[in-house]
Design a protein around this nucleic acid. Structure first.
Length: 466
RNA sequence: GUCCCCAUCGUCUAGAGGCCUAGGACACCUCCCUUUCACGGAGGCGACCGGGGUUCGAAUCCCCGUGGGGACGCCA
């Protein structure tokens, strides 16, 4: 039995929107906490003052909210924790775990270059690292010092990654990383350590681009006498084309999915299955996901995003969705298309007719436009279906429609009667109607469409062609 | 360059030595349903990167290749 309280965190840096990879990391961290009745904490890592923006913070918050990933604590902002970081840095300085380094950026750049040329891993050479019996250079007056962590130089760091298994890295591969910049602000690896410690994080679930930071963080944690959390490093998500997602290529805000007409439950379900599995289960809600979720079934390899499958899930959730709720969403989208004041009730009928044949809400909204705006049928469709031989039949039909009862069934019977009387096949009459009334050769049952359009509109649109 | 990680159908994955003639899902193809297109239903196509071991037996374990990816910042 594990009596430890599970505490996870999602710690994005507010330098851009919440993208799909970040969303999955958040989802897994959230689910792990929920599964174990622990706490999920949101922490904004905004120590890069130059790149962090309040807009990005808001974008992340919006994304989390849209997905329904609620947090128990936070959001905490690292910039508001400066006094605490200074305190810990001071403590490390005093205990000999950290020291001042006066090497200039130029000096370090030169060092890096020569190391690369020699085929070595570029890293700080410890020139300002104090050692027993070592004579340090005189501190230059014109270089404001940074503070470096005194990383162990021998031995190795090993941890059992909950996704990737045992990982061991020699301390000789590591160097003395900077924990405070020349201007005094602390850096990422250090803040993470202090925060994870202070916030009693039990499981660090994050992207595997952090694997290389882990040994450094563990060393600092040890220097502070802090417990080492469990780590689970998630592999990255590749774009639809198999390429890495980046700002320049393919990375999309989760809110873009909202705009494009995806339901959060579809995105969530899709993301949950990207890198994690529960046997053959494909469709499940977040309650089920939280009860099933575990770290053992996360794949260690990278996954390629597949919009087709997301579309399939989205179509599924659109079919399941509450009609009235859909209507609210679609009304907004129609408004963006210049269609105002739609009747909620009529809209609900239209959606009921179209939801089974559409993959996104935007597509759904687009497909309803002809109900509100007279469509312009493509010429080739008209030529194909509105043939001279069928025109007299349609004229006949128009007359009958003027006085018939107006229900979907009744309209169907009227069309059917015309079809029978003329010895035709149903599509022969249905297709030209479809093209004229909807502007397209594809639509739901034409009698249903006509019923919702209403007698007046139907006659008006038809008579344009006679 | 150095270190680290990864490797099953086109894609997401199941698979913890025999249950695998490798299962499911998306996509694709065929048929059925049908008032067109979808939806739905029934089939089909389609994969263990290569080579060595270990073992009675390997998709599963080990090693070496190969191929991908990540990291090497006073970014996070």
């Amino acid at each position: 039995m594990n009596y430890m309280t599970i505490r996870t965190r999602f710690a994005p840096s507010p330098t851009g929107f919440l993208h799909i990879g970040g969303a999955r990391t958040a989802l897994f961290s959230w689910a792990y906490a929920r599964k174990h009745h622990g706490q999920f904490i949101l922490r904004i890592e905004d120590t890069d003052v130059a790149r962090s923006t309040p807009e990005a913070v808001q974008a992340i918050l919006d994304g989390m909210h849209w997905l329904g990933l609620d947090y128990d604590e936070g959001p905490f902002y690292q910039m508001q924790r400066m006094p605490r970081y200074r305190e810990v840095i001071q403590q490390m300085l005093e205990q000999g775990h950290a020291y001042y380094c006066y090497a200039s950026k130029e000096e370090l750049e030169a060092l890096r270059e020569s190391q690369m040329q020699q085929g070595l891993k570029p890293r700080y050479d410890g020139r300002w690292r104090p050692e027993a019996g070592k004579q340090l250079p005189n501190a230059p007056q014109d270089v404001p010092p940074v503070i470096r962590f005194k990383n162990p130089q021998t031995g190795f760091v090993e941890w059992n990654d909950l996704v990737k298994g045992s990982i061991r890295i020699s301390n000789e591969e590591l160097d003395d990383l900077i924990i405070a910049r020349a201007d005094g602000t602390p850096t990422y690896n250090f803040c993470v350590v202090v925060d994870d410690y202070d916030m009693k994080i039990s499981h660090v679930i994050r992207g595997d681009d952090h694997v290389n930071n882990t040994p450094r963080q563990i060393n600092m944690l040890r220097a502070l006498g802090a417990p080492v959390p469990k780590y689970a490093h998630l592999s990255m998500i590749l774009g639809d084309d198999g390429q890495k997602l980046s700002k320049r290529h393919g990375a999309v805000s989760v809110m873009q999915y909202h705009e494009d007409g995806y339901l959060p439950e579809a995105v969530l379900n899709y993301l949950a299955r990207l890198g994690w599995s529960h046997g053959d289960d494909e469709i499940f809600d977040m309650q089920q996901f939280c009860s099933w979720f575990d770290l053992d079934h996360i794949t260690p390899s990278a996954a390629q995003f597949n919009t087709e499958k997301l579309n399939w899930l989205n179509a599924h959730y659109i079919k399941q969705a509450d009609l009235s709720g859909l209507a609210d969403d679609i009304a907004v989208r129609l408004e963006q298309l210049g269609i105002q004041n739609v009747s909620h009730e009529t809209l609900t009928q239209q959606i009921a007719l179209y939801r089974e044949r559409t993959q996104t809400l935007q597509e759904l909204a687009n497909s309803l436009v002809y109900f509100y705006q007279t469509p312009e049928p493509a010429q080739d469709q008209l030529e194909k279906h509105l043939t001279d031989d069928i025109k007299p039949v349609l004229s006949n039909l128009i007359e009958l429609l003027k006085t018939s009862e107006w229900t979907a069934d009744a309209v169907h019977h009227v069309i059917d009667k015309i079809v029978q009387d003329n010895g035709l096949k149903f599509p022969k009459v249905a297709m030209p109607l479809r093209v004229i009334l909807t502007g397209s050769a594809q639509s739901p049952s034409i009698n249903e469409v006509m019923y919702i359009l209403g007698r007046e509109v139907v006659l008006k649109r038809l008579q344009q062609f006679f």
